[in-house]
Design a protein around this nucleic acid. Structure first.
Lengths: 156, 156
DNA sequence: ACGCAATCGTTGCGCGTGCAACCAGAATAA
DNA sequence: TTATTCTGGTTGCACGCGCAACGATTGCGT
């Protein structure tokens, strides 16, 4: 996606310029990171993200929570976990106290794969994103994005 | 996509936090804008973007240039233009001086559709993005994104 | 001039996604 | 209890995308 209120006469040009570059930067960086991780580790970015979230959660997470953490619809996550389970990187366990729930688990193979992929990905983020930002700018951007997210997520 | 070097011990936490929020903010905002434009105008964001780019270019643009402007592969753009042409919003013209090229043109119906959709989209960007950014922050973010984009696009 | 590489746009193909419908289990109310 | 509603996860379906391969045209090298 890349909508752009480019030249239409709006009162706030600087903000619209920021919006435009925001979109381009996101597209280019994620595209590049995806490519690098796939080339060096044969791992899609979405898979890596699932592995990270599972690892951070201690090895198991319910589908619903994982879907929210991973910015994916529940349907999409179902299929993604199918693939990762088929590859041996994740597993499913029934949830005892809520019998309609399912836990997704991080298998040893998944841990190993994450361990191998993390440095590659982190290097990419450093090289293509973080490197260009001063600590002060990082704080400022975090604050801005927090305001944006808060406004959106509070419309229940 | 939403990779995240969340808790791994990296020396620069603030930058990684910015990265994480950057991804979430992009996902949420574009998702919302897409939804709003579809609901109020029955127009996908990608279509709107094409209309804007054509309009800014004076009504005609070659496939290759349009694809770059619109952050889409050439194959993807071929199909998108197919759909928009079928809907009467865009047309194709052969290119005289380079006979393998094709111009995409903005039809009157396309102009009208853009005229109707622009206020909705711009309001959305204002409401969900620009509103939360001070002019100073906007400049700073533009500068940051420019550095990021320059670094990526200069790897020929 | 010729041949070879590069570029433009299109097409076949497979893949990943969201939406809506669905079923099973849980929570609330009477 | 039973009826109603809500939530969690999976499935059918259609759609939009990128990749790789292709035909057509252009430009470069010699």
């Amino acid at each position: 996606m890349s909508p752009a209120g480019t030249t239409e006469a709006t009162p706030d040009l600087p903000r619209m310029a920021a919006w435009q570059r925001f979109l381009r930067a996101h597209a280019r960086v994620t595209e590049l990171l995806e490519r690098e991780l796939a080339a060096e580790q044969g791992l899609p970015l979405g898979w890596y993200d699932v592995l990270v979230q599972l690892s951070n959660a201690g090895g198991r997470l319910r589908m619903h929570d994982l879907a929210r953490a991973v910015l994916l619809s529940r349907a999409g996550l179902t299929r993604l976990v199918d693939r990762m389970a088929a590859a041996g990187l994740a597993g499913r366990e029934p949830c005892a106290d809520d019998r309609r729930g399912t836990f997704v688990t991080l298998t040893p193979a998944g841990q190993e794969r994450l361990r191998a992929a993390a440095p590659v990905h982190l290097r990419g983020v450093q090289e293509h994103f973080a490197r260009h930002i001063s600590p002060g700018e990082a704080h400022e951007m975090s604050a801005v994005f927090d305001r944006i997210l808060a406004a959106i997520e509070s419309r229940h």
